[in-house]
Design a protein around this nucleic acid. Structure first.
Lengths: 187, 187
DNA sequence: CCTTAAATACCGACTGTTTGGTATCTTTCA
DNA sequence: TGAAAGATACCAAACAGTCGGTATTTAAGG
């Protein structure tokens, strides 16, 4: 609508809107639908406005991904802080955060967008290194094979979740979550 | 190079080449790189040739996905035929096929392309229903929670595999495979 | 506190390129 | 000869990105 110039200037707010709208578009209509124009329209800004905040379309998309990974890191750290048992702490937090997101009505936004990361080689590196870093940091407490299996299953659940609306088989999430957490305690 | 009219006409072969090249492009450079022109060039055909075989770009992509799912079905059926134990047979075949593909040098083509299916809503339905169908068909032998967990972990492994080249943490595939298969026998 | 000038935020028309797709023509094969 | 296979030339739409301009903040000087 290009009405951002009428209201009080709030650059941070516009920036956020652009990031959020890009994420929403990618989720609902696929990454191909994330055109500069579409993002601008959704955010109520014109192209000039968008390119003022982001040097290129790629920079916008990179920003979206970075945003997601930041939130993920924060959520995982918060979950870990509540866990008294050291062994498998990171894995439990990973499972918890994943399932919390899947089961909440709100967080699904970035969940599916994250998948876009896999298809676009330009984004793969960022996510791959996020994974590597997280794992490296908690190698001392979460390096066992069984814990790795649990994390992979959480990823799988998350993947299956994408199919929920298209007739795909959705696991019983609460039960699965409990099962996976229990596995982190088993020898 | 658009020289397909010189050699002896082999329409089936050209069709295959188009499908394979499209798959390869999607894998190596992302789905966005799968343009009609790029596929034509890679397959040594002009646009006219491509549109003779496929009514639209979407039809081409649908063809690629259908092709992949067909092969998957065949591989799973073959693996199941070799398994004497009924319980968990489908899940074991699923794991086997997945890991065979991950560990082979050849099959990786369609593995990663499959992921593109997740990001494009137009393709999600196809894959979602493939999953639902496979599961439905073997509900009698593979409906237990532990087996579901195993399948999810296989999906996760497959997902992690995409990051292998970008510094992502790649599990010890043979060991993981053995672990997952063993889990299908456990009570 | 008021004026003013620089800097920031945003607009919207425009550009050259690339896109998927079509219409028409030529070659090959049965 | 006639149908299938493919080449060539073309098109309208959509694309990312640019550019000159305007409106709004911010900050400094008086």
């Amino acid at each position: 609508m290009a009405t951002a110039h009428r209201r009080k200037k709030q650059p941070e707010l516009v920036r956020r809107a652009l990031l959020d709208c890009a994420a929403k578009l990618a989720l609902e209509q696929g990454l191909a639908a994330v055109t500069v124009q579409a993002v601008c329209e959704a955010a109520g800004v014109t192209k000039g406005g968008l390119f003022h905040h982001f040097a290129s379309k790629q920079a916008l998309i990179d920003g979206v991904v970075a945003d997601i990974l930041e939130r993920l890191d924060a959520d995982i750290a918060a979950a870990m802080a509540l866990d008294p048992q050291p062994r498998g702490r990171f894995t439990r937090a990973y499972v918890t955060v994943t399932f919390d997101d899947l089961m909440s009505d709100q967080g699904r936004q970035w969940t599916a967008l994250y998948i876009s990361t896999l298809t676009e080689p330009s984004l793969r590196r960022v996510t791959a290194q996020w994974f590597a870093r997280g794992l490296e940091r908690h190698r001392a407490t979460d390096d066992e094979p069984i814990l790795e299996t649990v994390r992979l299953a959480a990823d799988g659940a998350w993947l299956a979740f994408l199919f929920r609306d298209e007739g795909g088989p959705l696991p019983d999430l609460p039960a699965l979550r409990e099962r996976l957490v229990a596995m982190t305690f088993a020898g």
